[in-house]
Design a protein around this nucleic acid. Structure first.
Lengths: 192, 192
DNA sequence: TATAACCTAACGACCGTTAGGAAGGTGGAA
DNA sequence: TTCCACCTTCCTAACGGTCGTTAGGTTATA
């Protein structure tokens, strides 16, 4: 489907150049069509951008569900630490993650509301899912130091974002450096 | 000095709209001059942008030195935790911090090299300073769990960025939420 | 007298978008 | 089965607008 090809190309361009920096001409050129042809598939730049956000979040959500499901028999530390490896692998293979992070922190001003309406439910779902996961693991394994599962989940997400930013910006090497620096400290503070 | 006023206005615009999104017309308008008058002070948009980066990093560096100096008698936890409060206060009062973070993670593609040459020494200096600080504190207080001071400093910087991102994006309330979630865990993992 | 700081006017380039039409496939009516 | 209307997808051409930038002139300051 040409429509999907446009979308994926747009994700890549928006990730690298931002909303204002990306140009429909260049996107069209990479797809192999002319600029006005995009309007046969999307109403305009805004529509294309928001579609790209929606598509990226939807894909990520499905991948996350699959990952956590595949890891449900693993010990907690493997699961939480493996999540970083999984994110790194995903980010290496495509630019969706970079796009998501960029949009989350620096959305185009005029679409800030619409972007927020797409992101907030996603982050909240992630937070809730992690909170539930920690609570259930603790019930069986009694592994955590504190029983404030919500804050523990939030802390984990904060760490995730910190190292993810490094991954997006500086690449794999510095990312691994950060992860190896922060994880032992975080894990030691988390468990009892 | 008009030149500085242009610079500060530029920082604010670049922070909110990004390099591509910011326009010299709007910057000039806010300053109270016409667009071409900017060229009496800067060679062009690139020059203005890189000057803004240099100015912001220089200012931040001076402020950081002053902060760490003023806190040199405080216990380590106060110093490290107080740094977050200090960052939050700074970010509330001006948009320099938002600009710095935005540029650090998402520089304009065509200036990525130049931006990197300005940022890398700054981050490295920060990392070295923190490493030394932790080492010296540990010598007197024997407070840390691990003696890998470099990694401890890196971990701390990672946390800082995680919560700073939240501050820049979601504002003070969610920032405090994050900080309160992540700090007890991090601190417990750091000390012995 | 020279220089810095501002102005108006205008440049070419690129932007997102629209108009209008050609090609091709699809589905229903004759 | 043939035909025609329709829709989708692409095109060329062009629109108005904004962008960063330059030329050239005026004014005030040193």
């Amino acid at each position: 489907m040409k429509s999907d090809l446009i979308l994926q190309t747009a994700v890549s361009h928006f990730a690298k150049e931002g909303y204002e920096g990306a140009s429909l001409s260049k996107i069209a050129e990479e797809v192999g069509i002319k600029k006005p042809s995009i309007y046969a598939h999307y109403k305009g730049k805004d529509d294309l951008f928001l579609s790209a956000v929606q598509y990226s979040l939807h894909t990520l959500k499905a991948q996350l569900a699959a990952y956590f499901n595949s890891m449900r028999e693993e010990p907690l530390e493997s699961l939480l630490l493996g999540y970083f490896e999984w994110l790194a692998k995903e980010s290496r293979d495509n630019e969706r993650m970079k796009f998501i992070i960029r949009v989350a922190y620096f959305p185009p001003l005029k679409l800030k509301t619409e972007v927020g309406e797409l992101f907030n439910p996603f982050f909240n779902a992630m937070h809730r899912h992690l909170t539930r996961l920690l609570r259930e693991r603790h019930r069986h394994e009694k592994v955590l130091y504190s029983e404030d599962f919500s804050n523990a989940a939030l802390a984990y997400l904060t760490i995730t974002e910190g190292v993810m930013n490094e991954l997006v910006y500086s690449g794999m090497e510095k990312y691994n450096q950060r992860l190896q620096a922060v994880w032992p400290i975080f894990w030691r503070g988390l468990i009892r």
